[in-house]
């Protein structure tokens, strides 16, 4: 059973137990949130011993090289000595809100001043700090064309950060973030590949960024975007997406409503099912799945079985929570 050395103490993990679960079991508080290898809140650094490959997935190259890993995804095969992130490696970034507008009843668009020297790709995410809480939000802006950062924030019942953003936050308010994180973004390795983008709710944020990023970089293959919601009021940016489809012959937009009552303007059914029905063979396609975690999980399997290669499937499952996230003390 591997032993973990952390802050001058040694903790024994059970076999196949993650570093995060093991430390938590021993009563050691480690910042964490999704516990699924996504949000990167539980980022830690290996002082001795090797973090597993899977625990370094999605972490920035420069941090991987410095042996950073995700405590929730790391099930060590041997002893390790670990530490919290070094503040110098992960500087907190100061910015401010420059505008906010509703996109539908529950989702608002926030524009933030792009911090000087902030390098990111559309579809990556940032962690936003507010008091002792933090939340992950995807970047819907495209660095080449937008001189601001854009987030789509869904209001969560009793959500600490989304509530504050929707109700109180105004232009000029300061914000603290760190990031960017994640590998759910476009890369220009094959501009003729067909892209399939499936999202639900505010999962449109990364996809809106990824589609425009691909187009801005001269992507020539078809780009099919399916956006789903239970009812039509949950859809948003409908006009903007239709205009994008008019301007770019290779961009196709399909709004989907799953709760019945779809009019002629929308397809009736779940976005992933409609997409798979229209495109049952996905060999050679690149896939982006964002939004509801259950949808992302099941769609991942479906698109894989439909022929998409594992390395061509990018996924960003959104976990929504109302309770407090413990943020690392800066």
């Amino acid at each position: 059973m591997p032993r973990i050395r952390y802050q001058q103490r040694t903790y024994v993990l059970k076999d196949d137990e993650s570093v995060l679960d093991g430390l938590t079991r021993h009563g050691v508080a480690v910042p964490s949130s999704c516990r699924g290898g996504v949000c990167q809140t539980c980022l830690m650094r290996a002082v001795h011993g090797d973090p597993s490959e899977i625990s370094q997935r999605g972490i920035k190259e420069s941090l991987r090289e410095r042996r950073y890993f995700l405590a929730c995804a790391c099930r060590p095969g041997a002893d390790m000595e670990i530490a919290l992130p070094d503040d110098n490696d992960l500087p907190l970034i100061m910015t401010e809100v420059i505008g906010k507008e509703p996109l539908n009843q529950n989702i608002s668009r926030f524009r933030l001043r792009a911090p000087h020297g902030f390098v990111y790709r559309a579809g990556q995410f940032i962690n936003l700090h507010h008091h002792e809480h933090l939340r992950s939000y995807s970047l819907a802006s495209v660095p080449q064309t937008d001189n601001y950062l854009e987030l789509h924030v869904q209001r969560i019942t009793a959500g600490r950060i989304s509530g504050w953003l929707h109700d109180k936050c105004k232009a000029g308010d300061p914000l603290i973030l760190h990031g960017p994180f994640g590998d759910c973004h476009y890369s220009k390795r094959d501009i003729d590949q067909t892209l399939l983008l499936i999202g639900t709710g505010s999962g449109l944020a990364p996809l809106w960024g990824i589609a425009r990023d691909a187009l801005a970089q001269g992507h020539r293959g078809a780009i099919h975007l399916f956006h789903g919601s239970r009812d039509a009021t949950g859809l948003y940016l409908i006009g903007a997406l239709r205009r994008l489809a008019q301007r770019h012959r290779n961009f196709h937009y399909t709004p989907c409503v799953s709760g019945g009552g779809a009019s002629g303007n929308y397809r009736s059914g779940r976005a992933d099912e409609i997409a798979l029905k229209q495109f049952p063979h996905l060999q050679g396609w690149r896939i982006f799945l964002c939004g509801n975690a259950e949808m992302v999980k099941s769609a991942k399997k479906k698109v894989f079985l439909a022929g998409a290669a594992l390395r061509d499937i990018h996924a960003d499952p959104f976990e929504f929570s109302a309770d407090a996230h413990i943020a690392a003390t800066p």
């Binding site: 699924g36 290898g37 894989f304």
Partner: peptide
């Protein structure tokens, strides 16, 4: 099962 973990 989680596909990425399983694939690993």
């Amino acid at each position: 099962v989680d596909m990425e973990k399983q694939a690993a």
